[in-house]
Design a protein around this nucleic acid. Structure first.
Lengths: 142, 142
DNA sequence: TCTTGACCCTGTAGTCACTACAGACCGCAT
DNA sequence: ATGCGGTCTGTAGTGACTACAGGGTCAAGA
């Protein structure tokens, strides 16, 4: 187990570098309430510790899995408020999984048609461009 | 072959209804230069004909295939300017196909991890929530 | 001590592809 | 005359950032 001690006094750039997150994105996540506002130094500089880093990593991982910021807010709320967040978290993830699968299906439909027209354009034997004809609707897209 | 004659004097709502396009979207496409500004009646009302309808259908079909508005602009430019747009159009479509395939690959990565954690949450035997643990990074997302 | 450069702060605007609304005008039927 | 639907314009909102502008702060080097 790493992070035995809480490391304090991280600046924003350092937090960004450690997590691979864009500098401005950190501020954005604070603004929209995904990350808590960190304490400030006397001069008003944000001062993070490893608990902030952990939470930011959670957000970044969830984004990698395609969760929306609203869904992530919901997940974080469950983590904060529930003893056993698993059942409710599962619902969020399962719903998101449905979304992802629907998107895959959409993209595969596009892929099929695109592959088709690119192949037809490639053989170059046709007088009219099959891609353009398809888009003008003389041929069906499905 | 339908549309032997060019039908004139379509109003915006009628054009939208005929194409299934949202009313406001028509105006938006004109604003960003995808559709030509139609002639106006004495009172300033837009008056479309079937050539506008044809072009709008092109845009809508291309959107269904996931082309960006910039790509569609490029395709329309080729249609307007080139005798033989096929080779250049093919490049646009092939590039877009690559994008689509990259997106599918991304989504499949997400799908795999999500399926996994949802299944682990489902059996409910674990003391910690596998989804939450995954997001906090104690386990690899791959 | 001065300067340089790198960091920090805030607020605002831009991205993409729409979508929605406010506030005004017009045309036709009752 | 009055309603109901249509039209017009411009602007603002969405999601998830990203990129400035215009200022302040700080530590190291000459």
């Amino acid at each position: 187990m790493r992070d035995h001690a809480v490391v304090k006094g991280l600046q924003r750039a350092e937090l960004a570098r450690r997590t691979g997150c864009n500098l401005e994105t950190v501020r954005y996540y604070e603004k929209v309430g995904l990350l808590p506002e960190p304490p400030r130094t006397a001069r008003g500089y944000r001062s993070y510790d490893t608990t902030h880093e952990r939470r930011l990593r959670f957000v970044l991982r969830a984004r990698e899995l395609g969760f929306s910021l609203d869904e992530i807010r919901e997940l974080l709320h469950l983590v904060d408020e529930r003893e056993q967040p698993c059942v409710e978290a599962r619902v969020v993830a399962a719903t998101h999984l449905d979304d992802v699968q629907a998107k895959i299906a959409d993209l595969k439909r596009m892929e099929r048609v695109l592959k088709d027209v690119v192949a037809q354009c490639a053989d170059g034997a046709l007088p009219e461009c099959p891609l353009i004809e398809t888009l003008f609707g003389e041929t069906s897209v499905d």
